[in-house]
Nucleic acid binder design. Structure first.
Lengths: 219, 219
DNA sequence: CAGAATGCGACACGGACCGTGCCGATAGAT
DNA sequence: ATCTATCGGCACGGTCCGTGTCGCATTCTG
């Protein structure tokens, strides 16, 4: 589907030649070009949002033939996945220095802020959109990005169990989907912000359920 | 974005004239046509999935000019929203006859089964995909469908509070997003099924947090 | 340093859909 | 019987896809 109502009339003045940032130095090749294409994709996602992302537009913007892109990626979502990896920042990991409550909270807030702002937001949305009609892509998203988040979350809450902050009589693994996924609801399906209200509601529920009152907890 | 790798080569043999189910009786008009178009959309979503849904394909399948569709809906997502209403079945409401635990569980299972299968699944996915590049559409989805789910969920858990099944010292409103949204994570972002495992994990967490052990609850 | 191999930009296709405009036919309302 | 809105059919220009071809530039190999 071509979603946006104005998905025509895009970016692309039918100018005969390349854009500004190309053709300065000698023709780039190989890995150098690959890196440049990822950067251009990033910049475009930032400037024009997901609606303006197409292989033709990216190629034109980079001053490049479409083949140069297709030689590297088989489709736009493939390119976007690699681009996503550039912004799926390493600091998406949990601190282990505070209470489990504080560390979860900080991490969730950090994640929600990442989603909120370009360029991660638009690119992630584009991939999610494409994945709705492509089960394979959904699998890839989970394997390349979300599985890591889930296992880090599990590791963090298990550490809290070991430290006696959480009840030790429950297996927390099944709850990981709830912890990792709850915040997506607002982001993907509504226009309400993923704010501290939802985050606190989630953490409160989690702590009320599995916290040990003799340690931290609250409610 | 045009996601699926094979999003070309579609449905549409360039046959000169209409398909089977048209042209039997005299030309239909007005509301009658509208209903028929919704049904055709439904049937196509069922048969060819979301990848095969386009205004041209629907028009051809219904033996109709594109104008007849554009006269009624401004875009494919608009048509899909109305189609969704046809399958967003009324039984997506909570029973109030069992324990809160059982009623939540039954409702969640019912919802997940609806998502799993055509025609609701494909159409909903198509709308969600389109909504990623269209904030207005996201707002519409929430207003037309999800807000109802949320308020029904809130009503059901508040009833449980009144009945003494849940702690009365907490405002459950903030938790509604978690209850209503958790299950979407798997469905939208992974290929793992929304099975009873996740559902039970969610409900367990909820009941552990807000249930009253003197009533039902469990660990 | 010369020649081969390969990456590259430019351009051109055919195809799917989009959204619109125009036509003559047809159906319901007057 | 006439009038008018709706209809189906057709064609258009436009965007983007994915592929193919060509001649040049760069880099590798000998």
């Amino acid at each position: 589907m071509n979603a946006s109502p104005d998905s025509h009339r895009r970016q692309q003045p039918p100018q005969p030649s390349q854009s500004a940032n190309a053709s300065k130095s000698p023709r780039r090749r190989g890995a150098e070009r690959t890196r440049e294409l990822l950067e251009v994709t990033l910049a475009m996602a930032d400037e024009v949002g997901y609606g303006g992302l197409s292989i033709e537009a990216i190629a034109w913007r980079a001053g490049v033939g479409k083949h140069t892109i297709y030689r590297r990626w088989s489709s736009l979502p493939e390119l976007l996945l690699d681009t996503l990896e550039h912004v799926w920042v390493s600091d998406f990991d949990y601190r282990t220095t505070g209470s489990i409550r504080d560390d979860l909270r900080e991490q969730f807030i950090r994640s929600s802020q990442g989603l909120k702002s370009p360029p991660l937001g638009p690119i992630y949305r584009a991939v999610i959109a494409a994945a709705q009609s492509d089960e394979q892509l959904r699998e890839t998203i989970h394997a390349r990005f979300l599985a890591t988040v889930e296992s880090r979350t599990l590791a963090r809450v298990r550490l809290a169990q070991d430290r006696g902050e959480l009840r030790s009589d429950v297996d927390l693994e099944p709850t990981i989907d709830v912890l990792a996924g709850s915040l997506y609801y607002r982001w993907v399906l509504t226009t309400r912000p993923v704010d501290e209200g939802v985050i606190d509601a989630l953490i409160d529920m989690f702590m009320d359920a599995y916290g040990r009152s003799d340690h931290s907890a609250g409610g």
